[in-house]
Simulated assay, not measured.
Amino acid sequence: MADMFLEKFRSLVPKYLEDQWNEADGLTTEELREGLSQSKVAIPFVLEEFYLALGNNDDFMEAYHYFFDPEELEIEDGYLLFLEDEEEKFVWGFKASHLEVPDPIVYRRNNKKGTWSSEEGTFSEFTLDMFAWIFEELAAELED
């Protein structure tokens, strides 16, 4: 499959960090395969490209929310979990039955209630919107 999302994710580095993207920002294909072999899960194409673009960049992997490293990915409640908020109140994932969809819909679980709800957007939409919100908040804090 051709790169569908890789350049969009790479473009976040100059957009928000005012720096050029470089290979050290992402995982290598071998690092990603090794991590996935440890977690023993399959991932959607979009998540693969996200890790290849930004998987080593803590400014994105740990920006208010924490993206799981490939070896930490797991399926729970019928969802592949990939992201958690810093207070561990919520976790985000994809339906395990939708992992073959290149850019699946994201769902959020309220950890206290154990209920899942749709974010009504695909992973690429969700992450691009999330980073826009995070970096706008950071810029506003710096202005104060």
Rank of each mutant, 00 (worst) to 15 (best):
59 D>Y: 13
15 K>S: 03
7 E>P: 02
85 D>R: 12
137 E>K: 14
133 W>R: 00
31 E>I: 12
132 A>N: 13
26 G>W: 05
81 L>I: 10
120 E>W: 00
94 F>C: 09
127 T>Y: 05
109 R>V: 08
103 D>W: 04
109 R>S: 09
86 E>V: 11
139 A>F: 13
93 G>N: 08
1 M>R: 14
120 E>H: 10
51 Y>G: 03
110 N>T: 09
74 E>R: 07
120 E>Q: 07
123 F>D: 11
110 N>Y: 01
20 Q>Y: 15
34 E>I: 09
78 G>I: 01
68 F>Y: 09
29 T>P: 11
24 A>R: 13
89 K>Q: 02
38 Q>M: 04
56 N>L: 02
13 V>G: 06
144 D>F: 04
9 F>M: 00
52 L>H: 01
122 T>F: 11
14 P>T: 10
122 T>E: 00
86 E>S: 14
37 S>E: 09
66 Y>F: 14
103 D>E: 02
58 D>S: 14
121 G>R: 14
90 F>W: 12
132 A>T: 14
62 E>P: 07
136 E>M: 12
40 K>R: 09
130 M>G: 03
60 F>D: 06
118 S>A: 15
32 L>C: 00
9 F>P: 00
67 F>S: 03
112 K>Y: 14
135 F>P: 09
136 E>V: 10
104 P>K: 06
44 P>K: 00
54 L>S: 07
38 Q>E: 07
44 P>I: 08
104 P>R: 00
86 E>I: 13
4 M>R: 10
114 G>L: 15
100 E>L: 12
28 T>S: 11
133 W>K: 06
8 K>G: 03
7 E>D: 14
136 E>C: 08
66 Y>N: 14
141 E>N: 11
75 I>E: 11
136 E>W: 12
27 L>D: 02
4 M>N: 13
73 L>H: 05
128 L>Q: 05
15 K>Y: 05
61 M>F: 09
44 P>E: 02
71 E>A: 04
96 A>H: 02
21 W>R: 00
38 Q>G: 03
46 V>G: 07
26 G>E: 01
44 P>H: 00
58 D>F: 12
27 L>V: 03
127 T>A: 06
110 N>I: 06
129 D>T: 08
114 G>V: 15
68 F>H: 01
121 G>Q: 15
100 E>D: 14
77 D>K: 06
117 S>Y: 14
110 N>P: 01
106 V>W: 07
87 E>H: 10
113 K>T: 15
50 F>R: 03
123 F>K: 11
2 A>L: 05
126 F>V: 09
140 A>H: 06
101 V>Y: 06
69 D>W: 12
127 T>P: 02
76 E>L: 01
69 D>M: 11
98 H>T: 01
118 S>Q: 15
131 F>K: 00
48 E>A: 08
43 I>E: 08
62 E>H: 14
86 E>C: 14
1 M>V: 15
10 R>I: 04
21 W>Q: 03
110 N>G: 07
126 F>L: 08
46 V>Y: 04
92 W>T: 05
36 L>F: 04
71 E>N: 12
41 V>R: 00
73 L>F: 08
39 S>H: 04
94 F>D: 04
25 D>T: 02
139 A>D: 15
20 Q>G: 11
114 G>Y: 15
21 W>L: 07
39 S>A: 00
82 F>N: 06
